[in-house]
Design a protein around this nucleic acid. Sequence first.
DNA 1: GCAAAAGTGTTGTGTATACACCCATGT
DNA 2: ACATGGGTGTATACACAACACTTTTGC
Lengths: 226, 226
Amino acid sequence: MLNFPRPSVTIDCVVFGYDGQSLSLLLLNRKEEPFKDMWTLPGGFLFMEETPEESARRVLKTKTGLAGMYLEQLFTFGGINRDPRGRVLSIAYYALVDPKKFELIAGTAANGVQWFDINKLPKTGFDHKEVIRAAIARLKGKVTYQPVGFELLEKKFTLTELQFLYECILQRNIDKRNFRKRMLESKVIRATGEKRMGLKNHAPELYEFDEGEYKRLLKEGFQFRI
Amino acid sequence: MLNFPRPSVTIDCVVFGYDGQSLSLLLLNRKEEPFKDMWTLPGGFLFMEETPEESARRVLKTKTGLAGMYLEQLFTFGGINRDPRGRVLSIAYYALVDPKKFELIAGTAANGVQWFDINKLPKTGFDHKEVIRAAIARLKGKVTYQPVGFELLEKKFTLTELQFLYECILQRNIDKRNFRKRMLESKVIRATGEKRMGLKNHAPELYEFDEGEYKRLLKEGFQFRI
DNA sequence: GCAAAAGTGTTGTGTATACACCCATGT
DNA sequence: ACATGGGTGTATACACAACACTTTTGC
């Protein structure tokens, strides 16, 4: 039964980061053929003793230095000629990280690893353009009805910072008062009582994500809407 | 590079059908070990010269006789011990069909193939219980904001029939007047002018899905809500 | 004429959106 | 004192949910 020819199976990761200015995406410059010296998503072969998600985390750790992030399966890409080396399936994941929390460490198999503004991506190898497009669409959809995105900020953040992040993801302006109202009503964020000082204006309140409350609300089947 | 050990890759299909009474699901009784004589989702190994979706269609055609249905990738299951024969990944798809349009033909590798009421499923082999749960959740989510489900009815249907189908999928009652209003306002269905005769009551109007209009509306970015 | 299901509108309630000014802080 | 961005409330439109009776057909 298991004597069927087997495709190779890889994992590719679309890692979104946010530096406070724009949404960006982590790409890796390949040192080896195929697509030598081109930019591609961090990825690697699935090992036999790990699940796809474990594999995605290992790949990210060893090839980019990132660990411990939010991670979700995106789609499995299986085009017959998507890899010039042969039949290779790719289980794609997407991840959200705060770049400031990690040091980028290019693995030995890469010339380098770098953040790119989501609106200024270089040409990419394999079918990774399609993978990236799918990941952006998924992130946009997800963020409007589930409170993801806190992973991209520091632990404590101001409402303006959170709003600006959402505007970067959704690529549209959001009304300040409506945004604040909905965020606070949802109870998934909590004021800390602290203020961010040192700005050249009104010192803004710092908030944090209330994960316990979020999980409790999920069980009650609550709806979140941007 | 491609000398890494490779997992086997299979395709599993969660096929939803609807007989006018209840939502049902197609299972296949295995003739071979493992899980001999148990019910499982129709599935099979991915061939090297086909994409995963092509594979899903081939598997359904050869193992159950079904063809030409709505099909969508669900999730890739990759638990390490999910198959006793070794490391086997499964790319799961889900499909919607009208059982009356097809004759069930059990492939040679099965004792039989049969529709089961979604609320009276037998014990299933592999991790297929989990796969089925994921497919039901996905179908429920999808149906509330996209007009899928017409695939489960005959070409021409009454609004009551459509409503009852939605009630089966969503497992809740829907207000008749609100349902009719929204369906008709959405423009994705169109009255045919014909009526279904022979019932022992008021002869109801027959409608059909307006696929052209649906695709046109999609481009405009319309929102559909049950 | 009786049983059975089809068909039909309105109203209240809640939710989303649009919009402008004052306030606290740093320089 | 001035520049900068933080913070706040309301009015309107729209969407959703609740609700009951009349009409058509078959028997």
